[in-house]
């Protein structure tokens, strides 16, 4: 009796989550398969023909192949900023966990502040202009590093605290220099949390809309999220193209989700509980 009740509850939960969470995604997919006329109805119907490839081609070549530029830009920004984040945050996390000085409380405060305080937009643009970095990919990469450092540091510091200090001391006695200790001994041991960092930060930076909107203006610098936003008006009557665009930019996170589901959840909950 009890088992039947739980089965019933399970089925109800499956139906409810299907309606609430799955149908919007099915809607995106179905719309991406339709032609212009059918998509104008914006209903949940089976596509009358197979138009996905036409739609994809159409979206990709819009505005002089802007999608290609955008995917390249977003990839450069994501890869470069995540690489810098991993190395710099691990270095900070390592020293922060190992060396206790009177500066530690200040550093911890700055990390927490970085998680909470909203960036001051126009003054940041002013600083970037002063450095000749405004509207450049370099500037965007450094901004992503600056804004996401606190989260990465917290993940690393928590993990490094679980690695016994004997490791570094043994290496020092064997004559290793500090750089060797870090890059050859500590950093490889941090691999699990590095994977978490890479996955969580990549998704976040790839999906970032607000910061490129402010700091990376101009068509040549478009990122994937901005493309979607720009095309919103251009495709206002071509819903099939709009949703093909949404589908295209949902694929990278989907792939990450399929392969790294566990690390993402671990990273987001660990970082969250600490933060």
């Amino acid at each position: 009796m009890k088992q039947r009740a739980s089965l019933l509850g399970g089925v109800a939960a499956i139906v409810a989550t299907f309606v609430v969470f799955v149908i919007p995604f099915l809607f995106i997919i179905l719309m991406a398969f339709k032609d212009r006329q059918q998509s104008a109805l914006r209903d949940f119907s089976w596509p009358t023909g197979f138009h996905l490839w036409d739609n994809v081609f159409e979206v990709v070549k819009t505005r002089n192949w802007m999608m290609i530029t955008a995917f390249i830009n977003s990839s450069i920004i994501t890869v470069a900023s995540v690489s810098l984040l991993v190395v710099f945050a691990a270095m900070v996390g390592f020293i922060l966990a190992r060396r206790k000085t009177r500066w530690n409380p200040l550093i911890e405060f700055l990390i927490l502040a970085g998680l909470m305080v909203p960036p001051a937009v126009v003054p940041t643009i002013w600083v970037l202009q002063g450095l000749k970095l405004f509207g450049t990919l370099h500037g965007m990469i450094l901004i992503e590093v600056a804004y996401n450092l606190p989260f990465s540091i917290i993940l690393y510091r928590a993990f490094i605290a679980t690695i016994p200090k004997d490791m570094d001391e043994a290496a020092i006695i064997d004559g290793a220099r500090p750089l060797d200790v870090f890059f050859r001994i500590i950093l490889p041991m941090l691999w699990p949390v590095t994977v978490t960092n890479i996955v969580v930060q990549s998704v976040g930076i790839f999906n970032d809309f607000t910061n490129p909107l402010y700091y990376l203006p101009g068509n040549a610098n478009a990122t994937v999220q901005l493309t979607l936003f720009n095309f919103q008006s251009q495709f206002s009557t071509a819903y099939n193209l709009l949703f093909t665009n949404i589908l295209l930019i949902t694929i990278p996170p989907l792939i990450v989700f399929l392969f790294f589901n566990r690390q993402i959840v671990a990273g987001m909950t660990a970082g969250a509980v600490k933060g």
């Binding site: 810098l84 190395v87 710099f88 945050a89 270095m91 900070v92 390592f94 020293i95 550093i107 700055l110 970085g114 960036p119 001051a120 003054p123 940041t124 002013w126 600083v127 970037l128 450095l131 450094l142 901004i143 590093v145 600056a146 804004y147 450092l149 540091i153 870090f182």
Partner: peptide, 16 residues
Amino acid sequence: FYLPAAIIYAVLFLAP
């Protein structure tokens, strides 16, 4: 080891 992170954070987040 703090320096690279500290410089980026100070210039692009704290200063603004």
